[in-house]
Design a protein around this nucleic acid. Structure first.
Lengths: 149, 149
DNA sequence: TATTGTTATACTCTATAACTATA
DNA sequence: TATAGTTATAGAGTATAACAATA
């Protein structure tokens, strides 16, 4: 770590860009009238229904927190609970048709904002950056919240 | 955007790596017994004292939120308020000696966790990645929260 | 009048512990 | 006994609106 010829170290650069991505995400959420957490939650559900426990694992939250989050989204007509036919203890949470529409629009808006952050790079630089970041992601078992657009 | 030869698009890669950085940050905060927000707040104050309004701008928070955050940190002996001699409305918030110690340790721990994310890259790749991310950060007026270690 | 902060209020986000019901 | 979720509780994070004090 440390400076190299007057340029930022990798750690600093990673932290700053993460801050920018978070801000883009938060701005997109505000645009849609919900919190970043609810936005992230909708994105987690986009690929398909999920159990309460799985949601907690993917998002890194305690199970009671997940209960509250699902309650909120359900109250707003974005998701619905369904009892697992194979295990009556388990619950499956899925987007409602309205929730899917909102989630897709939110995802598109958030993606556009994030893409805009790298607008000043050349096509070749973007490809290089995507490759290196992809390696970092792959090597650290990142949860699949954002899928490819 | 979209897939290119089976690899992730830049937007997705950015989002995933941001998620990893956030998780590293959250883990470091938990290690120190406070929330990611309090950790970020301490890092904002590391370079020097700051006014309430400036803190809100840098962190993207409403002023009443900043009041609450400073109250919390003050209650825990991490920061103290000082009235600006030039403008008695204004308040300057600074780390206490204890707060500085905690902030520095937290910053070091967080930085180490973030650096570890890129451990699998070669030295040359890390330099390339740092350069490209630095460009992205510079071109988007990112707030200076993480300074170089 | 405009600006700096704080208060009052109302939610959401979060975790821990205790609980219910099913496996 | 172990697992899937919920409830109870408590506190932190957040914003809006109304306010006080100073410029």
């Amino acid at each position: 770590m440390g400076r190299r010829e007057g340029r930022l170290g990798l750690t600093t650069a990673l932290a700053r860009v993460a801050f920018l991505v978070n801000a883009a995400y938060t701005d997109a959420s505000r645009e849609f009238g919900f919190s970043p957490q609810q936005g992230q939650f909708l994105c987690v559900l986009r690929p398909g229904a999920s159990g309460m426990g799985e949601i907690g694992t993917v998002m890194g939250l305690a199970k009671s927190t997940v209960t509250g989050m699902v309650n909120y989204a359900e109250r707003h007509g974005l998701v619905r609970r369904e009892v697992d036919p194979d295990d009556s203890r388990a619950v499956s949470v899925a987007l409602t048709p309205h929730g899917r529409e909102v989630a897709d629009q939110f995802y598109g808006d958030g993606s556009r904002r994030i893409a805009r952050l790298a607008a000043s790079l050349t096509e070749h630089e973007r490809t290089t950056l995507a490759g290196l970041l992809g390696r970092v992601a792959d090597d650290n078992h990142v949860s699949v919240i954002f899928m490819d657009v």
